[in-house]
């Protein structure tokens, strides 16, 4: 950087020293690359290389011949199609539930005075940093047949027979919504904070009712933040493993569980790898589409963690 600035001075000195300065700049960027290289090398070896390897593997069938059999399977076998349908259904339901619960929460947080908001925010961030296993265990305790929810409802006389809440689709939705909710609330809240209150005040000054101000000014301005939260949650749902594996009762087979079964249980690496490749492709396509449409990165949530 220093050398670049000297070059800007131009003049006879600039041309005289150009070679030395260029060598200096080169040394500088080599130094920076050397700082980056251990991290980059590690990520490359542990993530990129194996994924490339798996992709290569997915192109061969059991006999070792080059074929698309591993991919054709997805369209031919009903069990795979069922898995995809279940996965997308869960992702849609969970994303929907997160929007319904998360939007009012983020809106409230953005309207509260700073102090109150930061106290409430603790209740969002703490679960975010609590192990997924702990939270899934909690929901198992609450939702199972003899769990807390059922015994409360029976004690209150609302129901006479325990409701099937865990080990099925409903359990997976409830547990996953709890885990995904902060991923929607945090970016949404951050974007709502940037909405200029003057716009709202101007709207109300001009005679709009609070409801109309919200509908015509605040809501449209909050949409990019909402979209970024929705994309993150949806994408995370597609590849989610822990909660459906523990709360699905073996009935809700999602994409990631299918991958685990095919590789660990049946040692069918080609099929498992193909599932992984398609999952990655869908994930990247959704994130890319989002970035292209809104010109923003959907990974913003991580910096606010």
């Amino acid at each position: 950087m220093q050398s670049a600035r000297f070059e800007d001075l131009g003049g006879p000195h600039g041309t005289l020293n150009a070679d030395a300065l260029r060598a200096d700049a080169r040394r500088e960027s080599f130094g920076l690359l050397a700082l980056l290289s251990p991290g980059l090398l590690l990520v490359f070896t542990v993530i990129i290389v194996p994924i490339g390897w798996l992709f290569w593997l997915s192109l061969y069938d059991e006999t070792g011949a080059l074929s698309a059999a591993n991919y054709a399977r997805f369209f031919e076998q009903a069990s795979y199609i069922r898995t995809f349908i279940t996965t997308f259904k869960v992702a849609f339901f969970v994303t929907g539930a997160c929007v319904l619960l998360g939007y009012p929460l983020a809106y409230m947080l953005s309207q509260l005075p700073r102090r109150a908001a930061s106290i409430c925010l603790i209740f969002v961030i703490l679960p975010f940093w609590t192990s997924v296993l702990v939270r899934t265990y909690a929901w198992l305790v609450i939702l199972q047949r003899k769990g807390l929810a059922n015994s409360w409802l029976i004690d209150l006389g609302v129901i006479s027979q325990p409701l099937p809440l865990a080990n099925n689709f409903a359990g997976v939705i409830i547990g996953m919504t709890h885990i995904m909710l902060p991923f929607l609330v945090l970016p949404l809240y951050a974007s709502m904070k940037t909405i200029d209150t003057d716009c709202l005040r101007a709207g109300m000054n001009l005679g709009a009712s609070p409801a109309a101000t919200f509908r015509q000014i605040f809501f449209p301005l909050s949409l990019p933040g909402l979209a970024s939260g929705v994309v993150i949650v949806f994408v995370l749902c597609l590849g989610f493993f822990v909660t459906p594996a523990l709360m699905g009762g073996g009935k809700v087979i999602m994409w990631a569980m299918r991958m685990e079964q095919t590789t660990s249980l049946y040692s069918n690496w080609g099929a498992g790898a193909a599932l992984g490749v398609v999952l990655l492709a869908v994930t990247l396509a959704l994130l890319g589409l989002f970035q292209w449409l809104l010109g923003a990165r959907a990974t913003g949530v991580w910096s606010s963690r």
Binding site: L40, T45, V46, I47, P50, E260, G276, L279, L280, T283
Partner: peptide
Amino acid sequence: LLTASLIIPVILIGIGTFFL
């Protein structure tokens, strides 16, 4: 590359790492 592990599904990283 640095943020790859935040974007790539963890299950794929798990299987890939095991394979490697």
